[in-house]
């Protein structure tokens, strides 16, 4: 059983996950942000690996990634940072990055480092299912890693069923046809989509992300899924108000 499955055994409603960018706002902030999120009782944390060309990300995460790279962050530094909190951090971590980062680092070397850091779940938004089936499933199995797939309003039922069968942690339900950082309330059209997915009675837990930003969108989304992920809104707050104010951002959402 992986860390996310264990989490779901304890709690499977109203989960809040926060995405943050490693090395942002400052190089050494990676572990500080994780500690602050843990203190604020976030259920699990998405550890974002800054990438130069993040195709699925909007301006906020592009900017934080750019800043982090300018700060000198790289995969070796990130893995070292994560190693220092391996024993103390109790909140499950999920690694989110782009496939080229793993490819260039060396697929086996990357997977081994992830495992060494005590992480067992990864999200790679540009890893397509066919590549997973042909190659990456065997690689991840070898290291006991779990891959999270994304589904969208345009993913067919047949494909969702297949993704469900491959999913061991959760399915990442992309809330609308958008990149990260979409704004505004949840529309009726989105609710219809969430209900459709909910009524499919999938074996996987569902976490909604992309466009979840505050108490209202969190509460609405949680009606149709086990929890949500907030990314851009958190990064924006972190950039403006700093690590000390993380609790002020989280508390109103989960209270």
């Amino acid at each position: 059983m992986n860390s996310i499955q264990k989490l779901f055994q304890q709690k499977d409603k109203n989960l809040l996950s926060i995405y943050f960018t490693c090395g942002y706002p400052k190089l050494e902030d990676t572990t500080k942000v994780i500690a602050a999120l843990e203190k604020s009782n976030v259920d699990f944390i998405e550890v974002g690996l800054p990438y130069s060309d993040p195709l699925a990300d909007g301006p906020t995460i592009q900017d934080s990634s750019h800043k982090a790279l300018e700060n000198g962050i790289n995969l070796d530094i990130i893995f070292n940072q994560l190693m220092t909190i391996k024993e103390t951090n109790k909140t499950p971590l999920v690694l989110m990055g782009y496939l080229n980062q793993m490819l260039k680092y060396g697929e086996d070397r990357f997977c081994q480092k992830v495992v060494d850091c005590g992480i067992d779940t990864v999200i790679l938004p540009d890893l397509p299912m066919v590549e997973f089936e042909n190659h990456y499933k065997a690689l991840f199995d070898k290291y006991g890693l779990t891959n999270v797939f994304l589904i969208t309003p345009h993913t067919s039922e047949e494909r969702i069923r297949k993704i469900d069968s491959y999913s061991k942690a959760f399915i990442y339900v992309v809330a609308s046809a958008s990149i990260t950082g979409a704004k505004g309330d949840i529309s009726n059209q989105q609710v219809v989509y969430f209900e459709r997915i909910k009524n499919m009675n999938l074996q996987s837990k569902l976490i909604i992300g992309f466009g979840i930003s505050d108490k209202q969108t969190f509460t609405t989304a949680c009606k149709y899924a086990n929890g949500t992920i907030i990314g851009s809104a958190f990064i924006k707050n972190l950039g403006e108000n700093g690590i000390d104010k993380i609790d002020d951002f989280i508390k109103p959402i989960i209270s």
Partner: peptide, 11 residues
């Protein structure tokens, strides 16, 4: 080659 694309572009 291949098609390394986010799920939204798949259809």
């Amino acid at each position: 080659g291949g098609a390394f694309i986010p799920e939204l572009l798949y259809p």
